[in-house]
Design a protein around this nucleic acid. Structure first.
Lengths: 194, 194, 194, 194
DNA sequence: AATGAATGAGGGTTCATTCAT
DNA sequence: AATGAATGAACCCTCATTCAT
């Protein structure tokens, strides 16, 4: 467990290989959804993906790399949604929260499982890079409404939102009215500190 | 790893037995602090505790039970501090946040490790019981200042506080000014919804 | 594969454990005798030793360590025989050769297998130490008959003897008259260079 | 790994095929020189040779066959040099030793690696054939100087020479003066027994 | 009560080899 | 002829747990 940097062992060139690669990552996702993180072993991943264990190791140097790829896949989906929000929008905050909630509840068990796994990895440069990117995007989107926000306050707001969405994803908080609650929490915090 | 319910195999009555039991739990805590959760295995726990693996299994039915005991130990320490806060205090919120931060940073690596482990356990009745107890205590302490608080808002406030303290414990947020930030976040949220 | 230094993982204290440890090493020896070096895997060693694979790994950190222990065992047997030869003897050379041949043909297939395995290990300090010790012993035993011998000539003589005994052990040379041949080769070389 | 007999799967007639075949064998040689025998796997050989694994298996039925071809290649180079020594030469022994040393030190790591690998193969008819051929050549070359030599003495002399050259190749013996040492050892042995 | 030797299911990974394209 | 994706037997090793002493 080093960081989030490792790449697939071999870049798949043929069409079939790309599909195999994706199937392996998706198999890992399904196992995390249906069972426990403990149940995630390479043999099961291979079986679930419908490939042999050898094939799995052609594309990923080790188990860790599969998870990293999966985490990246999910992260990139969320980042893409956030980047798509227009900067000038009056409802940027609402849109961001909506995206986060949509992402969390698209595959809630997967999101929860990855949350834990991600934290088990040492915070490599890539994990920080994502936090930084979210901060940058948020900054752009929120400045219009809240003025200049101190970096630490921005991070605090992100942590609040993230925590609430995750908690709801894990069933600790009712999903009903979640969006409003998150928006309220973030908005009231930012207004209080600016 | 099923739930948080298992009890130590025998309720130790003799003085030495209690000490052994505590030594085993503390050994687990130390390993979690000094190494990784992956490094936590029963043989190492026994060695670190200065007892044989056989003795360990005389006091705990399985590895899970050791962790549950450790989690309970830490949780009870925090709950005791929270319960000690006088109900009539004007600064009850500040006191609660201070207690949480003190607890988190007393043994930050341990707190972070347990956070992850706890989530890996299925949410047994006991975990919920703790959440409920914190909600009850909080309710008592906060009503004076914020009036009647909806249960979901109380939970939300707790999740916010918890998330911020944890994030700071993991280094995602500066520790400096943490107390103020948490108080501000909780206070502004509660004021916004009441 | 580093050097010959690794020790058993855990020094066996109980009588049973010592026996187990020896059984594992002997099992490895038997497999090398009866099959190929390729057939030497830890599962087979454990099975042949009549213990579980887990037990094997209680005493040896890895496969390599078993081989190192076996090599040491055999080496020490030979060294003990060589050391037992009286320094003043007129027939020291003959006695040394006899010891080497006896050792080689006590378990010829084992000796041959270990020869190859030993060379596959990087020449650690210990392997050199043995060569040095043999040189020292030889020097003491041969000086009386051949006068002062240059170190390089001593090594050469040892290599000659070793090579001939090994070749005979592998069936490349007839065993008949082996002792005389080795003694002749060494004696004539040493007389030629002194 | 059975014996030295297997042939390349197809006798390549086309120019490119011969080159591919040679590239594969040379790739194996380079890997043995640069890394360990453990690092010698067919995928790596193919990669190093710049061909696909499929192509490799078009030319060689299995991994073993590649090594056999390599061993033959090296062996034939040495035999060719030995055969080139004129029978009537007074310095035939010196020439033979020089050839062996030249061969050993041309690619010392390769020679050492092949030495081990060769011994790991069961002594097939081919290995014996080589020993026999060397004996025949040696006999022709040495009779003039040493008279009729018993077969066992010839073999002994060859083993002595081979052992010394190999030992020097592996760094156990100084290379300096190696030629003289080998010649002295062989000459003094042969004079002693004839 | 305590010890620690022993167990063995299970997991990560490699690599010689095959075969569809 | 060449490619490289795919295979899966086999291997090394860990660790939760049991049980004879």
């Amino acid at each position: 467990m080093t960081s989030l940097t490792p790449q697939p062992r071999k870049l798949p060139t043929q069409r079939r290989a790309v599909a195999t690669c994706a199937a392996i990552v998706e198999a890992a996702a399904r196992i995390l959804e249906e069972r426990d993180a403990d149940a995630l072993n390479t043999n099961r991943i291979a079986e679930r993906a419908g490939v042999s264990i050898g094939t799995l190791y052609q594309y990923f140097p080790d188990k860790h790399a599969i998870l990293v790829t999966l985490i990246r896949r999910e992260r990139d989906m969320l980042l893409a949604e956030l980047r798509a929000i227009p900067e000038g929008s009056d409802t940027a905050l609402e849109a961001m929260v909506a995206a986060a909630i949509r992402h969390q509840f698209a595959r809630p068990r997967l999101a929860a499982a990855l949350e834990h796994i991600e934290q088990a990895f040492p915070l490599g440069t890539e994990a920080n890079a994502m936090a930084e990117e979210i901060a940058t995007i948020s900054s752009g989107l929120l400045t219009r409404r809240f003025g200049a926000i101190r970096h630490s306050d921005l991070l605090t707001a992100i942590v609040i939102a993230r925590g609430l969405v995750n908690a709801a994803g894990e069933g600790l908080l009712p999903r009903d009215g979640l969006s409003d609650r998150v928006v309220t929490a973030v908005k009231s915090y930012l207004l209080a500190v600016t």
